[in-house]
Amino acid sequence: MPLDTSSYSLALLRLDGRRWNELRRITAQISTMPSADGSSYLEMGNTKVLCTVTGPCEGGGTRDRDRADIRVELAIAGFSGVDRKRVGRGDKRVSEMVSTIQSTFASTLFTNLYPQSTIHISLHVLSQDGSLLAALLNASTLALIDAGIPMRDYITASTAGSTSSYSSNDESADPLLDLNTSEEQELPFLTVATLGGSDQVSVLVMETRVQAGRLEGMLAVGVDGCKQVREILDDVVREHGKEVLKSGRL
């Protein structure tokens, strides 16, 4: 359903009152589930995701004997979207996200330290309001850190869009950071995930049509957003570490 975003050019404010380079509020907690080896709860605006990590546990190594397998399960709650819809496991969009998360962490975690074992990442989407894949990747990073699985660096993700629609060729189009659902339906956007706030892109997914010239701006804004997200996630981890130290749970 097309939504009127033409008011953007008047005040340079988006529908929810943000400027072009502002993230939504990101809050996260880790160690939320006592039973799991690692767990996290992440909110990016109204997108809410729960992640638990179990493992590395015995069994696996079916793909490669010298490495741990990573298994990802993604459940999208029926009540998470605007209209109540059951999303099955066989859904292609879901299996694409699952294989993206799996392949991203397969090259970020030191899986070679755990031969013939499996790391389970289980993700639950409680509420969707845009940037879903980005939220899933961020939540998985936090839970894997909580589980103490050695990794190269944080994988942080964000989305970036462009205010021009694909057909128009206007020069005044601004790139936008961190889109919500209504913006995602209206504007071209991409999801980008980088390794540890560097310029190394490990995930780049775009599903909408856009002029090639606009890509550079969108990618730059997205990568910059990932750097901001890394700072936020790093704060969460350090805060949690301090609390654990203070309570003497170690």
């Binding site: 694409e96 294989s99 993206t100 998360i101 799996q102 392949s103 991203t104 962490f105 397969a106 090259s107 694909y166 991409l190 980088t194 390794l195 560097s198 310029d199 190394q200 892109v201 490990s202 995930v203 780049l204 997914v205 775009m206 599903e207 049509r209 856009v210 002029q211 090639a212 010239g213 890509l215 550079e216 990618l219 730059a220 990568v223």
Partner: peptide
Amino acid sequence: HGEVCQIAKLGGAPVDAVILL
């Protein structure tokens, strides 16, 4: 016409953003 319709880098090893462009 130079319109990008879709990009899919679904995980794998990280690559510099400049290389992707």
